[in-house]
Design a protein around this nucleic acid. Structure first.
Lengths: 360, 360
DNA sequence: CTGAAAGCGCTTACAG
DNA sequence: CTGAAAGCGCTTACAG
């Protein structure tokens, strides 16, 4: 940290060669003589030279950096049981790890930026990010289809919301199959005749899809599906807890099984049911979606649909890299498989649940 | 995404002004005439112009980007109960969020990079990172004191390992006070006479400190402290579980309380004790350190020491920014307060535990 | 207030 | 194989 960091000119001077030669040996281009190579490498070591990324990026028109935007959770109820927001971000964190590992394989770095849900100038923050990277990966619940597409006209964008637009690519988990298998398990294997769908953010594509599948499968299986505004959650634990409070307060009986839009909603529901003395799964079964790590730590263990979380991230990066390097990949919209994970919250015994799934 | 993105020259041409003027209105420097301002802004909007970050960085010699390096977890035992590594990274993820929020306030972006524990060319990866940012924040367990200091001679570095070196700054939680309060609680309030310290990575500064405090407080309180190689864990759940297996296999009685180096080790220990039918806290008490979100979801709720995780990250950023902008801050090595969080795994009743801590 | 021009630190045709 | 030079897209003294 003494003075300005050395530049390629300093290296060239010490090595007694031109900056072009320094650049070549450092990048492994051309075929420098062994002697040249040695002198450059020695000078580099002596100075502790590290080439400046900005200068290189400017020159090659590639920053080898991908921006990731995810949604920070709205402030939970002050004093609520779930004031701790960080648990809520597990899903995003694991996706980001998937992106990062894939990016690292390609020599790209990850520029991470969260936007608060209430953040008015989220748009500006995203532009600030955009100038520093080659393309953007945008998580669910950050931008709507219109905003995404507009952004996609300016730079490569892939969204993790499963939104298909003309100028972006997308990745999502297969909600249809996962949810279908789950509902059939509840109706056929457990014989439940009444269900409720504890919804996520109303207009999120995943929520729309999952609700539709629950409806269709309930009808096909001859089960009754409770609904209405009282079932509107938020994808977060607080929302799940509030729905349970409302349901219990309404005086109407609970359905036999509550199908939550995701694991966090289920976590909130489970917590509140336990506190109000409702036995899960004895009186009411509860299920989630995602299979975030905490799902297996809950008591009872949470029956859910596993998404390939890390792979969602890795795939998003691969789509983006392709977009950056060669333009729109084929296919532009990718759906990754999901699978039912039976634990105990659906009513399965420990033994049955364990036998049905891989060790965890 | 049609053709090359617009540059400041394009904007200037459309607006009918010089690129200097465009630069000025975009950066709010000088005092451009209202007319000039309008024309520039109109042209910017028309083109969807976003200034290139690399060019700006090269020019002003500031990337407004901070690199963060954290340690990816070694592969867990294949087929082990804790094959899922992501839970292990909660602590790092929350720190990173703290960094990010603080960085955002200063207009900095976060460049995230993990290194695998076994990764041979971690050094190279870190240099790759270094060229893209103004300084580095290095998590615990990534580099040793010598490596950190060497790195710190080339660019601003702050470490989250609590390691004090001549050329880096550091942040850590106050392990001394937190651990002292915890041990006193176990000995005085619960009357436990035998303890064991389930260690973390042997040469990690935090582990060294925590072990020393446990020893000192046990001695002072007249309690017996079990030790030996059988107590060596890893900071991860797997390590905690293995220590329990070894202990149970040895045939010797367990101490009345097992003090774990961190929450993850406690999680592993708790899991294994439950599986082997040992009652916690009835037969043996178990405690953690950190208070990661899952701690409150465990049954029994985990008694632990809360670290201000996000603040650790935010403080690390603030130190780094100061290092980047003005050179070494004062003080260069910061210690943040911790506090005992009583739940049930230490033997407290739900009521007593709840009364002793803030709602959660 | 505004513009012409130099400079930031690299990479890469182009000659030799 | 190697070097001189142009160029990447900005910012910022310096004149005017």
């Amino acid at each position: 940290m003494n003075g300005a960091p050395p530049t390629i000119y300093d290296v060239a001077a010490i090595a007694g060669v031109s900056i072009a030669s320094v650049s070549r040996v450092l990048n492994g281009t051309g075929s420098p003589r062994a002697d040249t190579r040695d002198r450059v490498l020695r000078a580099v070591a002596e100075l502790g030279f590290v080439p400046d990324g900005a200068a290189r990026a400017l020159s090659v028109k590639l920053k080898e950096t991908v921006g990731v935007v995810y949604r920070r959770v709205p402030k939970a109820n002050p004093g609520g049981v779930f004031a701790e927001e960080d648990e809520n971000l597990q899903f995003a964190d694991i996706i980001n790890r998937g992106i990062e590992v894939a990016a690292q394989r390609s020599g790209f770095s990850l520029l991470i930026s969260s936007v608060a849900a209430e953040d008015a100038d989220a748009g500006r923050r995203m532009l600030g990010l955009a100038r520093k990277c080659d393309g953007l990966i945008v998580h669910d619940l950050v931008l709507d289809a219109g905003q995404l597409d507009r952004l996609g006209r300016h730079l490569p964008v892939v969204n993790l919301a499963g939104i298909t637009t003309p100028h972006t690519a997308s990745v999502r988990g297969d909600s249809e199959t996962g949810m279908r298998d789950l509902i059939r398990h509840l109706i056929r294997d457990h014989g439940y005749r009444t269900l409720g769908y504890l919804a996520g953010v109303a207009d999120s594509p995943d929520n729309v899809t999952r609700r539709a599948v629950v409806q269709a499968e309930a009808r096909a299986g001859g089960a009754e599906l409770a609904g209405g505004p009282g079932w509107q959650g938020s994808y977060y634990a607080d929302g799940g807890a509030q729905v349970i409070d409302g349901l219990l307060g309404s005086g109407r009986p609970l359905p036999r099984a509550i199908v939550c839009a995701n694991d966090l909603a289920a976590l909130g529901a489970l917590h509140r049911l336990a506190r109000r003395g409702v036995d899960v799964p004895g009186e009411v079964a509860v299920t989630g979606f995602d299979d975030i790590p905490v799902a297996r730590r809950l008591r009872p263990g949470l029956t859910t649909v596993r998404q390939p979380i890390k792979e969602l991230g890795a795939t998003a990066f691969e789509l983006l890299e392709s977009l950056v390097r060669h333009g729109p990949p084929e296919p532009r919209d990718v759906v990754l498989p999901t699978r039912l994970i039976r634990r105990e919250s659906c009513g399965c015994t420990v033994a049955a649940a364990r036998a049905s799934r891989p060790a965890d």
